[in-house]
Write a protein that binds this DNA or RNA. Structure first.
Lengths: 361, 361
DNA sequence: ACACAACGCTAAATCGATTTAGCTGTCTGA
DNA sequence: TCAGACAGCTAAATCGATTTAGCGTTGTGT
């Protein structure tokens, strides 16, 4: 209600006056030059090489003095460049995507790009809709996180945690074999022999790759891999809508389902940290202690993993680096530097915390 | 390496051919009409009222057939509208901001807007830099989360968790008195009399408001409010850089510092969930049980709060709704519907979970 | 039979930059 | 002395839409 007297402020932002932005023309007139010259100089065009140093200085001085800011729309229209890219994530308030976006942002803004975000919630239809809208907005490319992409997009695209090999799409993927190996070795070294596994959401693009790696590695290590130790939720999830809250509930449900099938296991390798945490809760509710009775290992190392109690042993995905790599790769492709390699692989790292221990003797 | 034969795909996206987008002119020519007519019809301009229904249909049919998509840059340049807003958060991979952004996104995209995000990391300089860049990008307004805003921005702005009253800025704020009351009543009802408090980051805009509310409420309830029960970190943080990881460490450090000062308390009211979790860890490390020996109550109800073990009793901020309200308010101001009210207040909610209990007898 | 309105549409200006082709005027070299 | 090179700049087209002013044609009322 109370409001300071606004008379002191220079340009108020309500709906009152508009500050009338400084155009190129204004700068040119102020200098007695043409807009062409000013533009050439300000953009350091090679054509401006023949213009004497003194004029250069006058132009820059005037631009600074008048606080000239080139109009982004006009410039983009002419150059057919937007310096924007579209980022499609499952859901913005979800740990995995947030970590990747952090890396994306760091690199992109450093290079003078901005990004537009939208959430596809693991639905192909929603994804396609936003791809269309963002294309209309002239984004120069896409970074998609865990996106259920069906067809080759028209623009350069980098997929993080994508699994399909697709024309024009560069995948930033974890080396799943190495990652799974890390986790399994850890469990085996602790002495676990009966390990339970969660299989991920059928629409999540990492699910298949990771599952394959698990099967292979279990075989290599001679680990029992029995059906009653593997849990996948009943098939289609409720709607195609995705949320982290659901991931947690899913983990809890997984955990209960597993206990319903058998208690003959000493460790659980969850699909991700969220489901690991959900499962831990299910175990605790069932009177089992973690890690004394059951060791649990997660995947991702999202923030929660270290905050959790017991803190979570997990396979760390270098999310920030993956985001950075994705942006770097995309910008290179936009610049036409890189041929679109189908894969860039990053390595996982084992983070041992308190949710794993040797099995009871 | 291996790559499917791309001959089947229509338009490849590498750096090869460009699909040559359909312009308004193309549609007009295809119809034998002028671009003016087509534009008028497609935009349902009142000027097009005198154009017969049949022509309307022809135009729409052609647009659909040719898959015409208006060029965003051209349209924005002409209309002086970008349908974009700038969102400035402390850090994108942080729970509070993510929750608010979720709400922002939901409402904004529904209304045909997109948003550009940047992280100010609680630094005024970084904030100003991005404000400038985003203004240049012709955003139509700002939503700022926990931003250390010093001067009135030129564009319509809505601040979430802002505390300063400032010309042209609408604040979406929590009713801190009500929120604090909720928490304190809960503790008092449980029987706690000696309660410790954390004071937040000096650059975080909610810190002061919440601290004031705590002091007032403690007074109202006749609660002891002794200096040795209040902890604030040593003043300036290391650099002005902010991260959730630091919030956790801060909470841990808070907890240790508190224990160093006194153990004569039965409950802790932390500044937020992250610091609550950090403190709980410090207590556990010191051999105290939560909630048996010490009750801990957080603030925010970020995702982690419910996942944590023990799950966290906390004061829920309706982050999603705050984000929605912020966007709604901003769009209304952009449309010139609303006068810029200085405050919109939302109510908190107490979420009782497992980290609080009656004090030991 | 004629003025005037309504209809159906278009020419052209405009938004604010970028960029190519080219125009002066001076200087150089043969 | 004169062609040609070069320096130093500019006119004008262009990007793709939106939007105002207005132009011909037909119809209507008196």
């Amino acid at each position: 209600m109370s409001r300071k007297n606004p008379s002191a402020e220079p340009a108020q932002n309500g709906a009152s006056e508009k500050p009338k932005p400084v155009t190129l023309k204004a700068v040119a007139q102020h200098l007695g030059l043409s807009t062409a010259t000013v533009s050439l100089v300000l953009n350091r065009s090679p054509v401006a090489d023949s213009i004497p140093r003194e004029t250069h200085e006058r132009v820059f001085a005037a631009a600074r003095e008048l606080k000239y800011r080139p109009n982004y729309m006009a410039r983009s229209l002419r150059r057919q460049r937007s310096f924007s890219i579209g980022v499609l994530v499952p859901e913005i308030s979800e740990g995995y995507a947030a970590g990747v976006m952090h890396g994306i942002e760091a690199h992109l803004l450093r290079e003078g790009y901005f990004y537009l975000v939208a959430s596809h919630r693991l639905s192909g239809d929603i994804l396609n809709e936003y791809v269309g809208l963002l294309e209309q907005r002239s984004v120069e490319g896409f970074i998609m996180v865990a996106a259920p992409l069906e067809t080759s997009p028209l623009l350069p695209t980098v997929a993080v945690a994508g699994h399909r090999e697709m024309g024009g799409v560069t995948n930033v993927v974890l080396d799943h074999d190495q990652a799974i190996r890390l986790a399994m070795d850890h469990l085996v070294e602790l002495g676990h022999e009966r390990v339970a596994f969660f299989k991920g959401h059928p629409n999540s693009s990492d699910t298949e790759a990771r599952w394959d790696a698990i099967q292979r590695t279990a075989g290599d290590l001679g680990l029992a891999f029995r059906p009653e130790l593997c849990v996948q939720l009943s098939g289609e999830p409720s709607g195609e809508i995705f949320s982290p809250e659901e991931g947690y509930r899913e983990g809890y449900a997984f955990g209960r389902k597993l206990l319903g099938q058998t208690r003959d296991f000493t460790a659980l390798f969850a699909f991700n940290d969220i489901s690991a945490i959900g499962a831990i809760r299910a175990f605790l509710d069932a009177g089992l202690r973690v890690p004394e009775d059951v060791s649990v290992i997660g995947f991702d190392d999202i923030e929660v993993a270290s905050f959790h109690n017991p803190s979570l042993t997990t396979v760390r995905q270098p999310l920030f680096e993956m985001g950075e790599l994705a942006s770097r790769t995309l910008l290179a492709r936009i610049a036409g530097v890189d041929a679109p390699a189908p894969f860039h692989t990053v390595e996982a790292e084992l983070v041992v915390r308190d949710s794993t221990a040797p099995p009871r003797a």
